[in-house]
Design a protein around this nucleic acid. Sequence first.
DNA 1: TAGTGGTCTAGACCACTAT
DNA 2: TAGTGGTCTAGACCACTAG
Lengths: 244, 244
Amino acid sequence: MSSLLPVSNTALDRRALKHVQVREYVRGLVSGAAPGSPAPSERELVQQFGVARMTVRQAMDALVADGLLERIPGRGTFVARPKRSASRITGYTEEMTRRGMLAESQTLLARREHAGPGVARALGLTEGDSVIHWRRLRRADGVPMCIEDAYLNEILLPGFLQGGMPTSLYDLLTSRGLRPTWVEDSVSADRATAEEASLLEIEPQGIVMRHSRRALAREKIVEVSRGVFRADRFTLWVQLGQED
Amino acid sequence: MSSLLPVSNTALDRRALKHVQVREYVRGLVSGAAPGSPAPSERELVQQFGVARMTVRQAMDALVADGLLERIPGRGTFVARPKRSASRITGYTEEMTRRGMLAESQTLLARREHAGPGVARALGLTEGDSVIHWRRLRRADGVPMCIEDAYLNEILLPGFLQGGMPTSLYDLLTSRGLRPTWVEDSVSADRATAEEASLLEIEPQGIVMRHSRRALAREKIVEVSRGVFRADRFTLWVQLGQED
DNA sequence: TAGTGGTCTAGACCACTAT
DNA sequence: TAGTGGTCTAGACCACTAG
C-alpha cells in the first residue's frame, strides 16, 4: 500500500523505544496526508522495522487514540478525517486575533493585593493572602470592548509584577507551563454601571455581558477573572464536543 | 492486593472476547471504589482468568484510556480520581433539572414549514425543504424563562409531529440515537422585543440573552435553535477541558 | 528481595474485504 | 485467494518501588 523504503532509512535508534520510533515514523508519514489515504499496513511496518507485530500495534494504537488514524478491519488503516473538537481555551488576545481583530490592552491597575473573601475562595486561598490584581481596558480594532479584572495566585507566578506586563496573559502562562487546561465560565447580561459605561464608551445603563472565569492548570487555580463586554460588539461562541 | 476469587466466580464466558470480560470484571470492581485504591495487579488477573498478560494489558489499557484507572510503574494500578471534564451537552429540560428547578414547557407552535434561507443554510438543507418548527415558552419553577424556536431536519426525524410532543427534545433525540455529540453555541445580550417581553413577563425593552445552537449527531445537523432568555433569571455556565 | 508496570518477541488463528 | 486488522499465547528482560 505504501512504497517500501530501504531499511537504512528507518533504521532503529537504540536510544529510543521501538514503539515510539514506529509511532513517530508513521505520524510523519500521516501528517499532511489527505484523510482517507492509506497508512502502511501493520505487517509492512513489522518488515521495515524488524519488530514484532504487537510492537507495531502499540504504536498504531496510540495514533488511533489520538484520532490521527482509523482502522477498518479487513481493509487497512487510514488517515482519519479530523474530528470536530471543542473550543480551544483562550484568553482575550488569542480570541480576538482568531476573529481577525487587532487586540490591544491598556493596563489600568497592576499590583499586589490582599485577597478579599470572594477572590480568596475563588482562587482557593485564604482571605488576606497575597494575590496579583491586574485590571485592563481591552480594545478590538481600536474600540473599547472589555474591562477585565484578573486575579492571579502569586505563589504560582513569582516575580510576575516585576517582569513588565505582557500583552497576553495566556502567552505568559503558557511559557511558564501554566496554560489553563480546564476553565469554568459564566456569562450573564446586565446594564453597565456609570464607570463601566464611561470606560467602554457606551451610553449610561448600556447593555453589557458579564463574564467570569476560573482557570486551572496542573490542578491548581491560576486565574480568576471578570470581564465586562460591550454587548453591542461582542458575541460569545462556544463549541462543545462529547464522545459517543 | 485484592482477594483472590475462586476461578468459578470469574469463569470465562466463551461467547465474549476475553479482553472484554477482563475489562468489564475490573470495571465492576473499580466502579464505586475510592480514588487511589488498588486494582488487581496484571499478573493476578492473568492467574484468575487464565489468559496471557497481553490480554490483561489490553483490558487495562482501555480502562486507563477511559480515565478510570491510573498506572504507577513499580507500584501498581489504582483507581484514578475523576478528571475535570467539559460541560455535558444538554437541552433546556436537562439543564434546568440539573440546577434543581422544575422545567415546564408550553408549545406555542409545532408544524412543518418550508425552510427559509437562514434555517436552510444552518440545517445544511436547501431553501424550501421541509423542516419541523417547534416554538415553546419554557418555564423554570413556574416562571417564564425562555422562548425557544427549534428547527429540526424532518428527514432525520420521520413522524416527529405525529408522535405527541415530548417535554424534552434531547430525551427524544437520545431515544432515536440522535443525541447531539457536538454543538456550536453563540450567546449575546440584547433588549427584548415587545412580543418577547410580553411572553417572558418582563418590562418592555428588558434585557435578554439570545442563544443560538447548531447541534450535530452522527455528523448530521439535527437541530438548529434560538432561545431568548430572561437575563434577570439566567446565567450561562460552561466548562471547557483540554488535553495537556 | 519480591512485586509492579513497561516493553518486546515470534509466532498463531479468526473474520472480513477485495480481486 | 491474498491481504488486512482483531485477538491471543507464553514466555522474556527491564527499571522501579517498597518492605
